[in-house]
């Protein structure tokens, strides 16, 4: 069984495999945005945290 949710960036439908887990990071096939799976019931996506850059250890 697969799920589908709306990409919060471009509103495209994003299909997710049945073994998708909350917290998984997937890519929108339309706009390429990285998305975090927030919930499976109902399937909900948010933009994944962006990668910042920082100096130091």
């Amino acid at each position: 069984m697969s799920f589908e949710a709306e990409c919060p960036e471009c509103a495209a439908g994003v299909e997710m495999a049945g073994d998708t887990v909350v917290g998984e990071i997937i890519q929108c096939p339309e706009c390429g945005a990285e998305l975090e799976v927030m919930d499976l019931n109902p399937p909900t996506l948010e933009l994944a945290p962006e990668e910042e850059e920082d100096w130091g250890e």
Binding site: P49, E50, E51, E52, E53, D54, W55
Partner: peptide, 10 residues
């Protein structure tokens, strides 16, 4: 909200 970071140090 969590954030990711990559660093220029080691």
């Amino acid at each position: 909200r969590p954030r990711f970071v990559v660093k220029t140090g080691t």
